[in-house]
Design a protein around this nucleic acid. Structure first.
Lengths: 168, 168, 168, 168
DNA sequence: TTTT
DNA sequence: TTTT
């Protein structure tokens, strides 16, 4: 189908350490179990209640997996963006089962660490967060610049040279 | 847990008409089956391929369900925003099964119709789309207004009085 | 227009304490200045670079503002979800100026605190994050439940009773 | 900063044809003007009101610009995902001005056409929507597969072979 | 102005 | 300037 979007955004904490395996083709897969929860006051009883939801997350992006291996542990708080996928599998008795996962693939998912962790180790090429934004190349060309829409846009200032003094 | 986010955004088409039921408590539930898909060219074979993903969507918001009943049919293209929920149930043989759904609840979900449909049937209080933004009350208070951040913000212009002539 | 979506999602840190004012109508407004940034390695020079973007955020939701007043300080990391709005104003010389802001209104915005802070000050009815999910009422009715789609959905288990033992 | 997210999601219609220019470096830039709006009933007067918001969108991704050149015209409905950027410029009188835009860069933005248009012309490599998902390569490896989390995940079924018969 |  |  054309014209579709399939996007999941999660912020939550890992319930256990990531599980990382190598596939036959040499690629890696990381499985994460992440919890989100919500609190509310019960209208009837006035009591405070909480409901936790657990999400299966599967990462197929080797660069993200590098970061996961180095920095992501049980308890870590993550921002994750991926796609919903339901896959069929057969249980031990041969019955068809379905499992729905949040899948992160290269260029189709993002991961950002939200606690201070990371950065600790000598990892030169990863400074403690937001790996996704680091895939290479300048993030921009950024400057559409120029004044009016359709006016002569400027040369392309490049990131880092224009927004350090916004007055608010 | 505090500090969590659980959000799903889907744009896709309904694979069948919505199924709407009334619960014991009088509330309604709508079940939608929505497809998203992606296309890509296979690097090996050079062939074009497509993969369709089906999503179970459950709506608990009576206002959205009103709209669904009136305007949403098989084939309709929708923007949906909800939360991931996995629930346990027992199959006929007593085995535990899990099902993951995208759940829209009041104030915790959005639905917008993306084809021209709707609006057709004299519906005064719904003009063909974006029901979510219609929950009542002015959408704004809108005007933070005033010039500088922290400067004296103005009275609150209210929606509709300021953006009809943006020069781009 | 029908069929439109206007959504901004930010995760970043406050560059200064929130500014909160009371409007003529008695409602409150909070102004936040939040930074996001991205890092990348320059392909030419091989140097690491960073670009910071500052965002004006305006909150019109008194419940969120209560939380902000109590818990949100300079340096705090927040998840914010709101809408883009551009408003016109006149500078001291009478010139028309435009300012674009991320606006959070009630039921049309979310805020979640992402650092351990909050919860500190005896606040019984707010436990350190995710205020948005706390607007009242059970978050669910949650249980579509039942087995098959269209099958007889169950009574509505309610949050909190089903997902503490998902086996993954 | 590490740990930040800067994301804008828009669904709306183009108010005019895209403006496409070639930069000095040979890259292209597309400027789009897209409208979103919301409707609500005024609580005081009971009247229906509508507020339209206009957004400046700047696209730096040549692949998306190819699609825009071929298929995107005034009136087109689009799903767009990009980042907020505010840039400084000087007006004719030398005054500093700021302009906030939604910027789509390669691998950091998405665009999906939401009306039936496109696909018309012989465009073999683009079938009428969702260009973003077409960047190349299989979208997956898709199959984490296997039964349990941490259990031996299967070979990687690949997209397209498993979900045409999900029973809901 | 934040943060790492 | 769009769209309904």
């Amino acid at each position: 189908m054309s014209g579709s979007v399939n996007k999941v955004i999660l912020v939550g904490n890992l319930g256990r350490d990531p599980e990382i395996r190598t596939m036959q083709n040499g690629g890696k897969v990381a499985n994460l179990s992440i919890a989100t929860s919500e609190n509310w006051r019960d209208r009837q009883t006035g009591e405070r209640r909480e409901k936790t939801e657990w999400h299966r997350v599967v990462v197929f992006d080797d660069r993200l997996i590098d970061v996961i291996e180095r920095y992501v542990k049980k308890g870590a708080k993550l921002y994750l963006e991926g796609q919903l996928q339901t896959r069929k599998w057969s249980d031990q008795s041969g019955q068809e089962r379905y499992s729905t996962e949040v899948v992160l693939q290269r260029y189709r998912g993002e991961m950002t660490m939200l606690d201070g962790r990371g950065g600790g180790g000598g990892g030169d090429d990863f400074a403690g967060g937001n790996y996704e934004r680091d895939y290479g190349g300048a993030p921009s060309g950024g400057g559409s610049s120029g004044g009016g829409f359709g006016g002569g846009n400027a040369p392309a200032p490049g990131p880092g040279d224009l927004d350090d003094d916004i007055p608010f």
